[in-house]
Simulated scan of single mutants.
Amino acid sequence: MRGADVITVQRRKNEDFECITADFSNTEEPESIIAEVIESKGRLDVLVNNAGMMMEAPVEEMSIEDWQSNLNVNLTAPFLMIRAALPYLRKTTGNIINTGPVEGIAANPHHAAYCATKAGIHGLTRSVAVDHGREGIRCNAVAPGWIDTELNQDFIDNSSDPDLFRRDIGRIHPVGRTGTPEEVAALVAFLAAEESGFITGQLYTVDGGRTTQLSLP
């Protein structure tokens, strides 16, 4: 898929790629997004579901409104994007790549809604792979760990001791550092390519070994 036309979908305009602005909390957006892509390009080969949100709160302190907001963006929106895309992916024997971070298989404190929705992404991935494999449609998931995104960098910069935080976050990874967006993108590009044509229904963890390493006693 190298050289593919890339269209991003997000709340703010993306100056690096062709972009559609949308709000994934609106359940009517996915169908119109796919329709706009088809009108512009005439086909759809790969769908990457990467949108997400997080609200921190223990279960007892999370409102039903906040729970539903997490569900809408993190799980319902990908479901609706897949549903809208399937008729066009069927024509191109295309494939789907979902982002379901490591908190879909493990948990940090006060992330009940986030963890639940990301675990749902993993289940959705397997189900779509099973249901649509015979149509030539593949579906896989990528589970990033701590990646040096702008959001995470801002989180570190706003901590009480950013240098200590960076040192500590590196130590919990066997590779001794956090990951880069380019490393995650490389795996997504591979899963989108024909070379991965016999891979479907799989979850690939990209976390520098963090979830593999046992804590010290």
Rank of each mutant, 00 (worst) to 15 (best):
M1A: 14
R2Y: 12
A4R: 12
V6L: 13
R12L: 02
R12F: 06
F17P: 00
F17G: 00
F17N: 06
I20W: 03
I20T: 03
A22P: 01
D23A: 04
S25T: 04
N26C: 06
E28Q: 14
P30D: 07
E31Y: 04
E36H: 12
V37I: 14
L44F: 07
M53V: 13
M53E: 02
M55H: 06
P58M: 03
V59W: 12
E60D: 09
L71D: 03
N72R: 10
V73L: 03
V73T: 08
N74A: 08
L80A: 00
R83Y: 10
L86M: 09
P87N: 03
Y88N: 02
G94T: 00
I97M: 06
T99I: 15
G100L: 02
P101N: 11
G104L: 05
I105L: 07
I105H: 01
N108Y: 08
P109M: 05
P109C: 05
H110W: 09
A113H: 01
A116H: 01
T117V: 03
G120P: 08
I121P: 00
I121N: 01
L124E: 08
R126Q: 15
V128N: 05
V130F: 14
D131F: 08
H132K: 02
H132Q: 07
G133T: 12
E135P: 03
E135M: 05
C139F: 06
V142L: 13
A143S: 15
P144Q: 05
W146T: 10
T149P: 01
E150F: 04
N152H: 13
Q153A: 13
F155P: 00
I156D: 11
N158E: 14
N158A: 15
S159N: 08
S159F: 07
S159Y: 11
S160M: 11
S160L: 12
S160H: 13
P162A: 12
D163H: 13
L164N: 10
F165K: 11
R167M: 13
V175M: 15
T178M: 14
T180I: 10
L187K: 10
A189R: 15
A189Q: 14
A189L: 15
A192G: 15
A192L: 10
S196N: 02
S196P: 01
G201M: 05
Q202C: 04
R210N: 06
T211M: 14
